[in-house]
């Protein structure tokens, strides 16, 4: 009997070796092969129409939907060296050494002289987002497209700011990222990019901390008593959006948001970073967090 088990294990082991066969990709992109490990850069490249030479992205690059057809190289903070190099990159785009890792993979990439580029602008405000879009635009020779993206963003933001003034009430918003893990929630704080979008949408953040995201216990969530709770896609989808399941979340069920049914789903890529769609996302967020007072 044992012999059979051993034989079967060996056979499975040998068969699975095919996975590492690395058949050459049929579709070879001529010229540059770019791997983007920044979700913000990936989205801007698509918006500019500069995605032609993009051959792989990190797993958090999820917008636009077409990006999901590209192979992924892991999460930008947990990259695997060989996974990354299997995409045969001639250029790796990233947004700073603090956002890529682990450290030993970064030093191995440097050791192998893999070209890596970091754009000089860090888009953490609206103005710097515009600068970043222009910088990426000029890097890929898409200045005109960058211009039009900036104009759209500007116009959307003007409209959003105008509308935000009309709201009487400033709801307190709690953003829970990834949902519940054991009994703590990863909560977005006032220092996060998402917080600025909530504020532009005419809301206030329920939680503040020196860190951009904070793990909070159910008690603190209950005490913060937000008017609206936004759950990012991963956490919300795990609950299948059912109010029964949401009511079982410790701490959440005693909040005003739950009692009034103001718990909504947001896409992570609409809230966590700035990009060409930020203006539109703020407008959508306004409708979401002010369900009871619609501006005409």
């Amino acid at each position: 009997m044992n012999k059979y088990i051993l034989g079967a294990t060996l056979a499975i082991g040998l068969a699975s070796c095919g996975r590492f066969g690395n058949k050459e990709e049929d579709q070879q992109v001529k010229g540059e092969r770019i791997v983007s490990v920044s979700k913000q850069h990936s989205e801007i490249m698509y918006a500019l129409g500069a995605e032609k030479n993009l051959v792989a992205v990190d797993i958090s690059s999820t917008y636009p939907p077409a990006i999901k057809k590209l192979p992924t190289v892991g999460y930008h903070r947990a990259l695997s060296l060989e996974g990354l190099l299997a995409a045969k990159p001639t250029l790796i785009l990233h947004d700073g050494h603090s956002s890529i890792g682990p450290d030993h993979v970064v030093s191995q990439l440097k050791q192998l002289d893999i070209p890596m580029k970091e754009f000089s602008v860090k888009a953490s405000t609206l103005d710097s987002t515009i600068l970043l879009m222009r910088e990426i635009g000029s890097y890929f020779g898409k200045e005109k497209q960058a211009d039009s993206l900036c104009r759209i963003l500007d116009a959307d933001m003007k409209l959003a700011m105008e509308q935000a003034k009309a709201y009487q009430h400033k709801p307190k918003v709690l953003v829970i990222h990834f949902g519940q893990a054991s009994n703590v929630y990863l909560v977005v704080t006032k220092k996060n990019t998402g917080a600025k979008m909530v504020e532009w949408a005419g809301g206030t953040m329920a939680v503040d901390d020196p860190k951009a995201m904070k793990q909070l216990s159910a008690e603190v969530v209950a005490k913060s008593d937000p008017d609206v709770i936004l759950l990012t896609d991963f956490g919300y989808d795990r609950l299948k959006g059912s109010s029964d399941k949401i009511s079982e979340l410790p701490g959440v069920s005693s909040t005003k948001a739950f009692k009034n049914g103001h718990i909504y789903r947001v896409e992570e890529h609409d809230l966590i970073y700035f990009g060409p769609r930020t203006g539109k996302n703020v407008l959508a967020l306004q409708k979401l967090i002010h369900p009871d007072e619609q501006v005409q």
Partner: peptide, 12 residues
């Protein structure tokens, strides 16, 4: 096993 591990990987 050592030889196999150095021959095969994500990069061909």
């Amino acid at each position: 096993v050592t030889l196999l591990s150095i021959r095969y990987g994500a990069v061909e």
